[in-house]
Design a protein around this nucleic acid. Structure first.
Lengths: 340, 340
DNA sequence: CTGAAAGCGCTAACAC
DNA sequence: GTGTTAGCGCTTTCAG
């Protein structure tokens, strides 16, 4: 294996100069640099990242912690991080935390992670209190994309507003009896995306002077299957049933849509359904939703991290991401609405 | 930062012993090991991976190259790799190649990658000839999950059989005029999953003595949107139109399903549609398909890599993964079938 | 602008 | 079983 010394010898300079030349540092004359670069290429020299890491203390890799990698939001986000990283010579080290149910390790504090990355990007929906604590203890640039985490910079949409506006869309359409499909089944987690979306829904309903029917509140886990299942519980409701249902995610909304069709419930005539996210499949299925762009959010977060690593102190900060109500065919005024 | 020497000093042993003890190597008495582990924990010692990499020449990270990270197959597969890796103390370094269209770099040969990982797991649909060449040139354990790559070990389903059996399912149902939604729009790539699936379709049709209507062959790019678009072209076909369509992926099939409903085409009465993959959404949408488990495939591939790295020469080999025809509501005999 | 030299914190022989 | 001792291949002062 050809090392930096071989290049130095071949180019007739010192290793220090080769190091500077290769890394594009100043204090190397254009000529020498060109000559070094040429011989380096000629010899097929490739720096040893291991040696470089040890000597410099920088890993040039950023860690991405995600609860899932095979779900819409996270897949898009990871793609975004990757896009920013590679090309700038940074590596992406992926850590899949697993859902809340699995006994996920306290990776944050585990310096195993700690010593292998320069910065951390956390993708999240919710965090346990101990996890938040761990997070504050780590000493490196950190940004969270997705849900807010108290005390940490984050980039993401305003989930409260998203839930509220999608609910208001329904109310404006004339719906008075609206069901909800939550994304979470226990409530000991504050600051979580699922929780925040529920609040937006509640406030919209209350502000309109409507009341919540406890029976019309279903629990799901953000998967299509849980949407399917929720619809079964929905149709079991006594008449008159709600005329609309807001789902905390497009994936669940799609499940509701599929199953409604199968059971002969017409959407939107018999039931209006809305989601949140902007899943591609929702677009094709005609689902009304609040669109967001996880990829862009992740890119933004990554840029901040990189800037901070580049010495730009304070580059990491919270930022609210773009969102947009997209009305499609899954919503309409209720058939029994006074003004239809 | 506390280093191995600090631990050695505190425990009253040499650095070498600490190293052995920490890594669980033999030649350390149970007592000493216990004592060392205790003081290590006490001091909060964490090995420097950089130093370890440099000294040992092993990175304990495996690289995953994927064309996309935000698509069904790849998301599942990446989750599978992660699952096998972490817990065994291995890291996952993700490289997103980008689709075929993007000017993807020749990452394989780029020793940048080369020097940062111990083994490579390639997720793929198709590869350019130069890329295959690069692949053969790299000198480390390698396995490809998904598509076959000439000369490389791979784990994946028999795509030919998958396409053929799903088509035969339609033929057995009585369909005589079957459309196809391909997954690729140029044909200079052999050994690609899209290509192989088309062959399975063709052979099934020919074996049944049926003929292919060139007009009934559509191109897509594996996305839902391309399924939607294909259906538009389908309905523009002159009557009598095909009574069934086989799609090279569930995602495209779902797009066809959505758009068929929107345009008032009844599935399966007017049109039977099938996919390949086993996408969760297909299950909820009632899509007939050939199921496969990318996560399991990726886990298997990762295990092989790890075994090979563990000294088990020949651990990496090709393996055909499980697949299963799942008949749901999107298929039925054609309405005009003689025996309905 | 360039070079010499001292590490970075481990691992791996090889002795004891 | 345990200790000694070279490096691993760069980066980084500090001189010149």
């Amino acid at each position: 294996m050809v090392g930096i010394d071989d290049v130095a010898a071949a180019a007739g300079v010192s290793t220090a100069t080769v190091s500077r030349a290769i890394r594009g540092l100043p204090r190397v004359s254009p000529d020498t640099r060109a000559r070094i670069l040429a011989t380096a290429k000629e010899l097929g020299y490739v720096p040893s990242s291991a040696a470089s890491r040890l000597a410099s203390g920088k890993t040039r890799t950023i860690g991405v912690l995600a609860p899932y990698v095979d779900r819409w939001f996270f897949g898009k986000a990871i793609a975004g991080v990757d896009q920013e990283l590679h090309g700038r010579g940074y590596n992406l080290s992926l850590f899949n935390l697993g859902g809340r149910s699995s006994p996920r390790e306290r990776l944050f504090s585990k310096a195993m992670v700690h010593k292998q990355i320069d910065a951390l990007l956390l993708l999240c929906m919710f965090l346990r209190p101990e996890e938040i604590e761990d997070l504050h203890a780590i000493d490196m640039p950190l940004v969270v994309v997705g849900g807010p985490v108290p005390g940490c910079s984050n980039v993401g949409i305003d989930d409260y507003r998203a839930a509220r506006s999608i609910t208001e869309h329904l109310i404006n359409l004339g719906h008075r009896h609206i069901a909800l499909l939550h994304g979470q089944d226990d409530s000991d987690l504050n600051f979580s995306v699922p929780q925040i979306r529920v609040e937006g829904f509640n406030d919209a309903v209350h502000a309109a002077g409507l009341e919540l029917h406890p029976d019309a509140s279903f629990y799901g886990n953000f998967t299509v299957a849980s949407g399917v299942e929720a619809l079964h519980r929905f149709v079991a409701l006594p008449e008159p049933r709600p005329t609309a249902i807001v789902c905390a995610s497009d994936e669940m909304a799609l499940g509701v849509l599929f199953e409604a069709r199968r059971l002969g419930l017409r959407v939107p005539e018999d039931l209006s359904v809305v989601g949140i996210d902007g899943h591609e499949m929702g677009a094709s299925a005609g689902l009304t939703t609040v669109w967001q762009d996880p990829r862009a959010q992740a890119r933004r977060g990554t840029q901040m991290l990189l800037a901070e690593l580049g010495g730009e102190t304070g580059a990491v900060h919270s930022e609210v991401a773009e969102q947009r109500l997209i009305v499609r065919e899954s919503t309409a005024p209720p058939s029994s609405a006074p003004f239809v």
